[in-house]
Design a protein around this nucleic acid. Structure first.
Lengths: 337, 337
DNA sequence: TTGAAAGCGCTAACAG
DNA sequence: CTGTTAGCGCTTTCAA
C-alpha cells in the first residue's frame, strides 16, 4: 500500500506537507504543491480512510437510513438516495446505507463507533422512534419529513400544503367550482405520516379561500378501488369536475376506470396529481402535476448536513421546499353545464 | 469517547484482553470474559471503526455499486439493495452506497483508501467497464448479472433461460400451441444486458422442444405501444394463445388493452410474466409469474462475498438461481377452436 | 490464560 | 512556508 510517507519521500518533502497539500489547511508554495500533486498521481496514492478517521476524528461518511417497508413511492426513495450520494460526494463524503431492521440500535452503533459523522433519515413518521435517539446522540442529522415534534431537529420536506394549494388554485383558475382530493389509502394517514395531513389542510384551506365545493376520499391502490371511486364521483357527485390526486399508484387505474365510464380527461374531468415526475409521461393524457423534487430534496438535505458538520449554527430547523406546478394535458376548463 | 483502555481499566484487565474478548481470537477464561462483557455494557463501549480498520486492515464495510440510470425495475433494485444490507449486517459488515457517476474511479478510490474490503456490483451489462477494473484491483467482488466475459469474476443472477423455459412449459402443459414472448424495449437488448438474450434463448429452446409456434416482440412501455401489440396479436396472429411477458411495466397497459379489445384473460389468452413478485397482486387477474427473487439474490451475493473475504477459494464463479413458477389466475387452457 | 508494547497511516499541534 | 513528532484507538506479536 502507498502511504503518505511514500509520497513525501518521492516528492522530497515531509509527510505533514503532503497532508497539508491534501487538506489545504495551510499555505503551501505553488512549487511544492505541484511536486506533491505529481508524486500523488505518480504513485496512485489514496489516503487510508481509517487512519484519517482515527487521526482527525472525522470519517467523512454520512449514514443514510432508509425504511425497509414503506408506503412511500419506491422510485422516489431511490432517486432521493442517489441524489444524496451524489451531493455527498460533491462534499467529499461517502454514504453508508442503513436499514431500520437494526432498529435505533443501528444509529447508536454507527455513531458511537465513529463510522459516520452524521445521519440523514428518510421517510420520517409523526412519532418516529428515531427522532428522540437523534436528539440524544447529539449526532448532526437531517430528517426528510417532519415528526410531530421537530424541536431541536433539522427537517426537510416538500411543502405539501402549498402543493395542494397550487393544485386547487390551478383548477379554480380554470373555472372549476367543485374539486375532490383523492388521497392515499387510509392506512397512511393512520400510520401518521405528516405529509398526508399537510396535503389535506392545504387542500381545504385553498378550496375555502376560492369558495369551492370539496370532497375528500382516500383510495386504495387496487384496481377495484379505483373503479369504485370513479363511479361514485360520477353518479353521486356530478358537481366535482376537478380532481387532485395525491396517490401515485392509483392514477393509472383511475384513468382506465374513467375511460371505461366514458368520462374524458380533461373534457369532462380535470386531473392534477402530486407525485413523482416520471408519472406524468407514463400515462395518457400527460398529467398536469406538482412533482416531488427528489433530486432537490436530496441535495438540500446534504447541504444542510454539511452546514451542521462545519459548525454553522445558522442552519434552519425547518425547510419546506416550494412546489411547482407542471402543466400537462389532463386539466382544462370544466364542461359547460 | 469510551475507548478499549477505559473498558480494560473498568474490568481490571489489559486492553489486549478486551480486544481478544471482542474478536474471540484466543481463549479467555469464562470469568474474565464475563467481567469484560459487563464493563463493555456498563460503559456503552463501541470499538472505533477507523482505529480497528487501521490496525487490522479490515474495514468491515462492503461497497454496493448501484446504477444511476437504469432500465431495470427500480423497486427490485431497492429490494436487492436492502437484502444486501441486511445480509451484510448478519456478517458484521456495513454497506457503503456508490453510484456510477464517479465512473470506475469510485471503485479505485474506495478500494485504494481501504474504505471497503469488497464490492457488490449491481445491474451488470455485457460490456461493463467495471468488470476489468474489478479484475485489476484484485478486490473481492460479486457481480449481480453477467458480463460477456465473466472469467475471473464471481457472478450471480436468476437463471433467465430456465425461467423462460418454465413459462413456456407451463403454457405447453396447458395445451397452448402458439406462444409469444413480449420482451423489453429494443433499447435494453441493444444496451447489452445479458438477461434479455438469455430469456430469449430459453424461450426459443423450450418452444422448439415442445413444438410450439412462436412470435417474439419487444415492447415499449408506453400505453400506445401496449395497445398496438395487443391489436397486432389478435388480428395478425390468432394462433398465439399464450404470452410470456418479460417486461414488467408493460403488463398493466397490456391488460387494459386486452380488456378494451374484449379479449378475456385467461379465457381467450393466457399470460405468464417474469418480474417482481409484487406485480402479481397489483393487477387483475392475479398473474401467473416467475418472480425475480430479489431477497435471495442479495443474500446469496453477500454469502459469496463473505466466502471470498474469508479466503475460501471454493467460491463458485457462476451462480444461476433456480426460478420458480407461481400459479396465478392469468393462465388456463387455450379456447377451443 | 494474560499482559506489554510496537505499530497501523494519518493529522495537527509545536517549532522553526 | 516547511519539518518534527506525539498521539488517535485498536490489533497482534512477543513474552510470561
Amino acid at each position: 500500500m502507498v502511504t503518505i510517507a511514500d509520497v513525501a519521500r518521492h516528492a522530497g518533502v515531509s509527510p505533514s506537507t503532503v497532508s497539508y497539500v491534501l487538506s489545504g489547511k495551510r499555505a503551501i508554495s505553488a512549487a511544492t504543491r505541484e511536486r506533491v500533486a505529481a508524486s500523488i498521481k505518480a504513485l496512485g496514492y489514496h489516503p487510508h480512510a481509517g487512519a484519517r478517521a482515527l487521526a482527525s476524528s472525522r470519517a467523512n461518511v454520512i449514514a443514510l437510513v432508509v425504511p425497509l417497508r414503506t408506503d412511500m413511492h419506491v422510485p422516489i426513495l431511490l432517486q432521493i438516495a442517489m441524489a444524496i450520494v451524489t451531493a455527498a460526494r460533491g462534499h467529499d463524503h461517502d454514504v453508508l446505507l442503513l436499514t431500520n431492521d437494526e432498529g435505533t440500535e443501528g444509529l447508536h452503533r454507527v455513531a458511537r463507533s465513529a463510522l459516520v459523522d452524521a445521519v440523514i433519515v428518510m421517510d420520517v413518521e409523526l412519532h418516529d422512534p428515531r427522532a428522540p435517539v437523534l436528539r440524544e446522540l447529539g449526532l448532526p442529522s437531517v430528517l426528510i419529513g417532519f415528526p410531530a415534534d421537530p424541536a431541536g431537529l433539522t427537517c426537510v420536506d416538500l411543502d405539501f400544503s402549498a402543493a395542494a394549494g397550487l393544485c386547487v388554485d390551478h383548477l379554480a383558475d380554470l373555472g372549476h367550482t367543485g374539486v375532490a382530493l383523492i388521497g392515499p389509502p387510509a392506512g397512511v394517514l393512520e400510520r401518521g405520516t405528516g405529509f398526508a395531513r399537510r396535503t389535506l389542510s392545504g387542500f381545504e384551506e385553498a378550496a375555502a379561500r376560492r369558495g369551492l365545493r370539496t370532497l375528500v376520499r382516500p383510495c386504495e391502490t387496487a384496481h377495484e378501488a379505483a373503479w369504485a371511486t370513479a363511479k361514485e364521483l360520477r353518479t353521486e357527485h356530478p358537481e366535482i369536475t376537478g380532481l387532485v390526486v395525491h396517490n401515485e399508484p392509483t392514477v393509472p387505474p383511475l384513468l382506465e376506470a374513467l375511460r371505461g365510464l366514458d368520462v374524458t380527461v380533461p373534457g369532462d374531468l380535470s386531473i392534477v396529481a402530486m407525485g413523482p415526475q416520471d408519472l406524468s409521461a407514463a400515462v395518457s393524457p400527460r398529467l398536469t402535476m406538482v412533482p416531488i423534487p427528489a433530486e432537490e430534496m436530496g441535495r438540500r438535505a446534504v447541504e444542510l448536513l454539511m452546514g451542521k458538520l462545519n459548525g454553522d449554527d445558522r442552519v434552519p430547523g425547518s425547510t419546506l421546499m416550494a412546489p411547482r406546478l407542471m402543466a400537462g394535458d389532463s386539466t382544462a376548463p370544466p364542461p359547460p353545464r
